[in-house]
């Protein structure tokens, strides 16, 4: 987590989370992963989108947590959900037929067509870094109406080629999703700590369309491992409002206080 931007009272991560939250439309159903996606979705629900439907892969449909969960299976998600269904059901009945409007994903690597890697860095058999793996992401990327990716922008993450295709964005380019038979729309937005990328309407290549306040196009291009296309005109996002920041910080504070009421139990001390 970086400190506040010079001349501002908010951090790059806060700007990224606020920018992502603003993209969620009230009344839509959103498949949420833990971490930044969950924070952004809950921020949206508390600010402009009170009827946003949060779907967690643990089977919690319509969860309305009053504090940020640490995992996708915290009790607060089940306690506040409209329905709690089994894991086969959440994937087979809810995600697969296209009932979820927006899928919210992160990634360790991303390429110019929005293909995502969360499996390994390096060779599969002898990886430099073994990552957690696919989880729900391949089918979220395939079947949601659209995908929003939240990821910090740097050359290690924004790579010319991903080392492993865990989840398909636009594959090798225009028309590839249709050829593969993927029914969802694919990545509509990639929101980073520097700005926003969107697919070119013809080529599907990710193009820088917006910067966060105080960021230059040169910074964004330098943080990208391919020759990043830039839209004209390139616009600038509004900074976080005082209300957005206050709500976000109040939410973040709840994540650190969740275990005060836990029963006494042996901790992992040595």
């Amino acid at each position: 987590m970086s400190g506040p931007r010079p001349g501002t009272d908010w951090t790059a991560d806060e700007m990224m989370t606020v920018a992502a939250a603003r993209q969620l439309r009230d009344g839509t159903a959103c498949f949420v992963g833990i971490g930044l996606p969950s924070t952004a979705a809950n921020l949206a629900r508390v600010t402009h989108a009170p009827n946003l439907v949060l779907v967690y892969e643990s089977g919690c449909l319509g969860a309305k947590p009053d504090r940020l969960p640490l995992s996708i299976g915290d009790g607060v998600l089940a306690d506040t959900a409209d329905a709690v269904v089994s894991v086969p059901e959440v994937f087979n009945y809810w995600l697969q037929p296209g009932r979820i409007d927006v899928g919210f994903l992160g990634a360790a690597q991303l390429d110019r067509y929005g293909n995502l890697n969360t499996t390994v860095v390096g060779d599969y058999a002898t990886p430099a870094v073994r990552l957690p793996g696919a989880g729900g992401a391949p089918e979220i990327a395939a079947s949601c109406g659209e995908v929003v990716v939240i990821v910090r922008q740097n050359r290690r993450t924004f790579t010319e080629r991903v080392d492993f295709v865990t989840s398909v964005g636009y594959g090798t380019g225009a028309g590839d999703r249709e050829r593969l038979g993927l029914r969802g729309g694919g990545p509509r937005l990639v929101i980073t700590d520097l700005g926003v990328l969107e697919p070119d309407p013809v080529s599907c290549e990710l193009t820088l369309t917006r910067l966060h306040p105080g960021v230059t196009r040169e910074q964004a291009r330098a943080a990208t491992g391919w020759d990043l296309a830039v839209a004209e005109p390139l616009t600038t996002n509004d900074p976080p409002t005082a209300h957005e920041l206050a709500v976000l910080r109040a939410l973040e504070a709840t994540r650190h206080g969740t275990s005060a009421d836990r029963p006494q139990a042996p901790g992992p001390t040595v």
Partner: peptide, 13 residues
């Protein structure tokens, strides 16, 4: 049977 894995590197392994 499912709609899944299509286009990913998972089936190779």
């Amino acid at each position: 049977v499912l709609r899944g894995y299509t286009g990913t590197d998972l089936p190779r392994h």
